[in-house]
Design a protein around this nucleic acid. Sequence first.
DNA 1: ACAAAAGTGTTAGAGCTACACCCATGC
DNA 2: GCATGGGTGTAGCTCTAACACTTTTGT
Lengths: 237, 237
Amino acid sequence: MTQKMVEQYQAQIKCLVALDSIIFGFDGEELKLLLVKRGVEDDGSTWSLMGGWLRPDEGLEEAANRILFELTGLTDIYLEQLYTFGAPHRDRVERTVAVSYFALINVTDYQERVSHTYEAHWFSMHELPRLLFDHGQMVEQAIERLRYKASQHPIGFELLPEKFTIPQLQKLYEAIFDAPLDKRNFSRKILSTNLLEKLDEKQRGYSKKGAYLYKVNEEKYQKQFNTFLNFLPNGGT
Amino acid sequence: MTQKMVEQYQAQIKCLVALDSIIFGFDGEELKLLLVKRGVEDDGSTWSLMGGWLRPDEGLEEAANRILFELTGLTDIYLEQLYTFGAPHRDRVERTVAVSYFALINVTDYQERVSHTYEAHWFSMHELPRLLFDHGQMVEQAIERLRYKASQHPIGFELLPEKFTIPQLQKLYEAIFDAPLDKRNFSRKILSTNLLEKLDEKQRGYSKKGAYLYKVNEEKYQKQFNTFLNFLPNGGT
DNA sequence: ACAAAAGTGTTAGAGCTACACCCATGC
DNA sequence: GCATGGGTGTAGCTCTAACACTTTTGT
C-alpha cells in the first residue's frame, strides 16, 4: 500500500448508509404495506418505509434484517435487495445513500413489538399515503419486482400462513397482479408444480363447503426455486 | 428538526461509496468484459472492474457514467444498476459500500483514452482472471441479469454497431446465452418484433453471399422496450 | 331450500421446436 | 465449380385461455 493510495482513499467523501424496507403483507384479501411514522419531518406527520442506519460491523442484508426485527419481532423473513438511491440531496439533513430491500411477511405472524419506538400501520396498496423522500419510488419498484418474482419463482408462499387453501393463494396472486385469474387454470397450474401437499384438513368458517388446506413441500420448494413457471395473468404487463 | 434528531444523524458511521461497472462488449464472436489493472494490491497485478468514488454533487448513476467516460471516452452508454455490496471488510483499506452497474458498449465505438491512467483490457467471458474483492461475484450477477434482460427486452442492440446483420445479432445472443440457437427460428422471432428495418445494403467481406444490414427503428425501440418477447434458448436456464 | 364458495374437464388456438434445402458469391 | 455462409417454410406438439356446471354445507 503506497502513500499515494492512502491519500486517494482519504480524499473521498463519506456518506451515511441507510437501509429502507418495503414490507409486504397479505391479509387474505388485499396486499398491504407496513409503514411507520418517523419524526424526521418537523410536523412528524409523514409516513415512511421502515428504515435505519448501517452499523460498523454489519453487512447490508444483516442490517436490513436487524431493522426488520426491531419493528416486527420477526426473523427469517424473505428479504431481497432492490435498488440503491443516492441523489445528492435526497435526504435534506445529510448526504445519505439508501439501500432498499423488499420483504414478505405473513400478517398472521406479525405482532407489533410491545415497547415500540415506531408507530406502524398496514396500508392497502390502493390507499398509500404520501411518503418521505424518494420512498414512493422505492415502493413502485418493489411492486414491480414482486410481480416479476412471483411470476417466475414460488415466492408467494412467503406471504401466507403455513397452511393455506388454493382459493387463498389465488386471491394473493390476484392481489399481487391486481388482476382476476381463472380459478380452474390457476389451480391446475399451481398444482402442476407439485410444490403443494394436500392435507386431510379443511378450512372451516370462511365458506360453507370448506376448502382443503395445503402446505408447501419444503424440500421441493428449495430445489425448484429457480425453475418455476409463469404466473403472469392473461396478457401480462 | 429537533436536537435529538441531529444527534441521531451524527451518531451514525459513514462509508466511502464506490461505483463499479461491469462493462460488456461484443466483438462479433465473443462476449467480452473490460477490466482494468488497479494499483490497489501491493503487487499491482490484480485485475478489477472499472470503478471510482462518488463525488459530493453527483448522483450514483451520474458518477457511474462519469467513471465510464473517463475510461472509454463514451457517453450515452446503456447503464443499469445491479446490486450494492457492503460487507464490513470487503475493502480491506476502509469501509466501503460499492454500487455495481452493468454497461453495454459497442466495441467498435470504444477507443481507449490516449492519456489513460488505467491499463485496460478486453477479456473473453471464458477466460476471466481472478478479480479484486467481490468483483467476481458482481460479474456473475451481471451475466445473469444480462441474460434475463436480453430475454425480456430488446437490449442486445446496445452491443452492436448501428448497422448489423441478422447472423451477427444471432451470434450475439448465442454469446449471451452461451448456447446455440436455430437460425430459422431466431430470424423469424426477431423480425416478428418489427423493431428492425432492412436496409438496401449488404455486409461485404465476411461471407461470400453477403448478409443484409438492418438497423433498429428507434421510435419502436423506445416504445416497445417493455413489451418484448422471450429469447431464452430452447429449454431456458 | 337456498345461498355461497369449492371443485373439476374440454376445446380451440397460439406459439414453440425441430428440421433440410436452395441461393449468391468469391475464390 | 465448389466452398462458405445466407436465407427461407412446414408440421407436430405443448401450453394457454376461455368457458359452465355440480358439490358441499351452513343458515
